[in-house]
């Protein structure tokens, strides 16, 4: 029996990598820093013109903060080259989620932050570690990157420019 399970799992693992995200996304609720519920499908991910960039982060994740600080420093400059929507999606759970709003204000970040408190969106997108950046356009994930080392943000801006 186990043999067949291994066969199915290995087959699906390889074949699934061939298939792109094509059929849209389900309704997944996130919380804004003002306490409003926001639906993933209402963020403009269907647009064929403007891309939606989501950076998954947490207040305890130092590489995430390093990446978002660099992005914030050049945010206006990059928006002037090619406009894009940007959301920092916090995966802080209830241990640290109350720190998110004061944290982003204290950092002076200009972009919107949404909260994925029990990691529903993170799990749906199969994100294992933060930081993890995705670009959504025309209902598809057109770019994704995990981890951050200094300079990595240049690849993201390159992708935004070319997509």
């Amino acid at each position: 029996m186990k043999k067949y399970i291994y066969i199915i799992v290995a087959f699906l693992m390889i074949q699934s990598s061939l298939l792109a995200q094509e059929n849209g996304f389900p309704s997944i609720k996130l919380k804004s820093t003002n306490g409003q519920m926001v639906d993933l499908v209402d963020l403009g991910i269907q647009s064929k013109d403007t891309m939606v960039v989501m950076s998954f982060w947490a207040t305890w994740c130092i590489p995430c903060i390093n990446e978002l600080e660099i992005i914030n420093d050049v945010y206006e400059e990059k928006q002037a080259i090619k406009p894009f929507k940007f959301y920092g999606v916090s995966v802080d759970d209830t241990r640290t989620s109350q720190r998110v709003k004061p944290f982003i204000k204290g950092k002076g970040w200009q972009f919107n932050v949404l909260m994925d408190i029990n990691s529903e969106l993170k799990r749906y997108l199969n994100i294992t570690d933060v930081p993890h950046v995705i670009i959504l356009k025309d209902n598809k994930i057109v770019y994704r990157h995990t981890g951050y080392i200094s300079g990595e943000e240049e690849n993201l801006f390159e992708a935004i420019k070319n997509l």
Partner: peptide, 18 residues
Amino acid sequence: FSQSLNQLIKGNFSGSYE
């Protein structure tokens, strides 16, 4: 082969391995 398989399967697969 993979193209015809894609046509056969509607919807999308996603996943992760760790």
